[in-house]
C-alpha cells in the first residue's frame, strides 16, 4: 500500500525542472528526502500537497488518483510543515485555532493545546514576535493535531534547537507505532535520518538519484581506512573520494568486502553517515 505515488511526473518552473519523477512512498514507514538546496525537494512537496499541478504525469495519494476532485478530503489526512513559516503575522494562537477548527474535519483542539504547552509556545503573542524556532514548533503542533495519517515535512528540523530536535524525532517515532502512519521528511540535517528513517530518497537537479532502504544503503557503502601503501591503480578503482594523509587514507567503497578479504586487518571498515554518502554519490555523479 502506498501513501504517495508519483508516476512520470514532470514540472517546469522558470529555469527549474522536475523530470520524470517516479516515486512510491510506502505506507507505515518514515522516508527521508535528501538533496542539496535547490535540488527540488520543496517543489516535490508542493506537488504532493496539491499546491502545484504537474505538467505531465499522475499523482495519487492513499491510492486515490482523483487528487483534484478529492483535494479537501485528502488534505484532511495530511499534516504539513513548510521549511519557512507562512503564518499571518498579526494573528495569535487562539485566532489561528478558530480557523483550524473550521478547516480540519478532525481538528483535535485538546491535543493542539497540549502541544502548545509542551512546546512552550507563547499563546498571547502575535506570530511576528515569534522566533523562527517557535514558528516551526507551532507548525509542528498544527501538523500533529488533526489526526493526520501522512506527515509531509519540509526541513522541519532546520531551525530547531538540538534539545527540541531530539524531542521532535522521538514524537515522530512514537507516532510510527501506528502502522497506518506515514512520514515523508525532507532535510539537509541528515543525521536526523541516520537512526529513524526506513527509506531514503535522494533528489538532485530535479531527478531522483536513488530510493533505497536505508539499511541496505549503509550496508552497501562503507568507509574504509588503511595505510597509503596498499593503494595502487587496481585498489583505487574500487574506491572513491580517496583522501590521503600522513597517517593513511580514507575512502568510500561499495566493494568493501573484496577489499577486506584482500587486505584483512590492514583495513578498517566503518559505518558511513548519510551525509557522507550523499556527498559521495553527488561527487561520483559530477565526475
Amino acid at each position: 500500500m502506498t501513501a504517495i505515488q508519483l508516476k512520470n511526473v514532470s514540472k517546469t518552473q522558470g529555469s527549474f525542472q522536475l523530470k520524470n519523477i517516479d516515486l512510491n512512498i510506502e505506507r507505515g514507514f518514515i522516508t527521508g528526502l535528501i538533496g542539496e538546496n535547490g535540488a527540488g525537494k520543496t517543489s516535490l512537496i508542493h506537488l504532493i500537497l496539491g499546491l502545484k499541478k504537474p505538467d505531465a504525469g499522475d499523482i495519487s495519494l492513499f491510492g486515490d488518483h482523483a487528487v483534484e476532485a478529492h483535494r479537501e478530503a485528502l488534505l484532511n489526512r495530511i499534516g504539513f510543515v513548510f521549511s519557512e513559516d507562512r503564518f499571518p503575522e498579526k494573528m495569535t494562537v487562539p485566532q489561528l485555532k478558530k480557523i483550524l477548527k473550521r478547516f480540519y474535519e478532525d481538528f483535535n483542539a485538546p491535543q493542539f493545546e497540549h502541544y502548545i504547552r509542551k512546546f512552550k509556545i507563547r499563546e498571547k503573542q502575535k506570530f511576528k514576535n515569534y522566533s523562527t524556532g517557535e514558528r516551526m514548533k507551532l507548525s509542528i503542533a498544527i501538523a500533529l493535531s488533526h489526526n493526520a495519517e501522512l506527515l509531509v515535512l519540509d526541513e522541519p528540523t532546520s531551525n530547531l534547537d538540538p534539545n527540541f530536535r531530539i524531542e521532535f524525532l522521538e514524537i515522530l517515532q512514537a507516532l510510527m507505532e501506528d502502522e497506518n502512519m506515514t512520514i515523508l521528511f525532507s532535510t539537509h540535517i541528515t543525521s536526523d535520518l541516520d537512526s529513524i528513517a526506513d527509506y531514503i530518497v535522494m533528489i538532485d537537479e530535479g531527478k531522483i538519484v536513488f530510493h533505497e532502504e536505508k539499511d541496505l544503503l549503509l550496508e552497501k557503502y562503507k568507509k574504509l581506512k588503511g595505510p597509503v601503501e596498499i593503494l595502487d591503480a587496481q585498489t583505487e578503482d574500487l574506491l572513491t573520494g580517496i583522501k590521503k594523509t600522513a597517517v593513511g587514507f580514507e575512502a568510500i567503497s561499495d566493494e568493501h568486502r573484496a577489499l577486506e578479504e584482500l587486505y584483512g586487518s590492514q583495513i578498517l571498515t566503518e559505518q558511513l553517515r548519510i551525509d557522507e554518502l550523499m556527498h559521495h554519490l553527488k561527487k561520483g555523479k559530477d565526475v
Binding site: 476532485a69 478547516f103 474535519e105
Partner: peptide, 20 residues
C-alpha cells in the same frame, strides 16, 4: 492581505477544494 508573509501558501495547503 493574505499574501503578507506569503501566508496564502499556508491557507491553501489547508483542506479545501479549489472550486469551493
Amino acid at each position: 492581505l493574505m499574501t503578507y508573509n506569503k501566508s496564502h501558501e499556508f491557507f491553501m495547503a489547508l483542506p479545501a477544494n479549489k472550486r469551493d
